[in-house]
Amino acid sequence: MMTADDIIESGRSAGLRPAGVSTLKPAQQPAGPFEVPTQTRKPTARDALVTGLLVIYPAFAAVAAIIAGLFLTGAGSL
């Protein structure tokens, strides 16, 4: 493994490039979750069902947790 002292003693330059020059090519990989995909598809019924469950389930879970909390504290006997 090369250390900083090895690099300094070898006399090689660090190979820096000017700030305005970009020699790197963009990666050819599929778009991530926060990037716009190149091809968009129409939403399906499955997409609507999953979205609905992601919205509705937390609301029902919150209401159920509140009701269970009231029942356990004895406030349910009103």
Rank of each mutant, 00 (worst) to 15 (best):
F60Q: 03
P58Y: 02
P30I: 00
A48P: 00
T23S: 10
Y57E: 02
A45Y: 03
S10E: 07
L16I: 12
E35L: 06
V21T: 11
K42Y: 03
V63S: 08
P18Q: 13
P58S: 02
A48Y: 10
F60C: 12
D6S: 06
A64W: 03
R46L: 08
L54V: 08
L53I: 07
L70N: 05
A31M: 04
L16E: 12
P26F: 11
P37K: 07
L53Q: 06
A61Y: 03
P26A: 09
D6R: 04
T44M: 00
P43A: 07
Y57A: 14
K25I: 06
D6M: 09
A64V: 02
D5G: 00
P18L: 13
Q39D: 00
S13Q: 11
E9N: 12
S22I: 11
F34D: 15
T38V: 14
P18I: 10
Q28C: 09
A62L: 12
A61F: 10
Y57R: 03
V36E: 15
V36P: 01
A61W: 07
F60S: 06
P37R: 07
I7F: 13
A27K: 14
D47Y: 04
E35D: 14
T40M: 04
G69S: 12
P58D: 06
G11Q: 09
Y57N: 03
F34M: 10
A68K: 05
R41G: 00
T38P: 00
P43W: 03
P26L: 12
A31H: 11
G52L: 02
T38D: 10
F60W: 12
T23Q: 15
K25S: 14
P30L: 09
K25T: 13
A19N: 09
L49Y: 02
L49M: 06
T40E: 05
P18N: 11
P26W: 11
L16Y: 08
V55E: 01
E35H: 07
T38F: 04
A45D: 10
V63F: 09
D5N: 08
A64G: 05
A65L: 14
L54N: 05
G11T: 08
V55Y: 06
Y57P: 02
F34T: 12
I8W: 07
D5S: 08
V63K: 01
R46T: 05
T40S: 07
E9L: 12
Q28N: 15
L24K: 13
T40R: 04
G52P: 00
V50K: 08
P26I: 08
I66C: 10
F34N: 15
V36C: 04
A65V: 05
V55D: 01
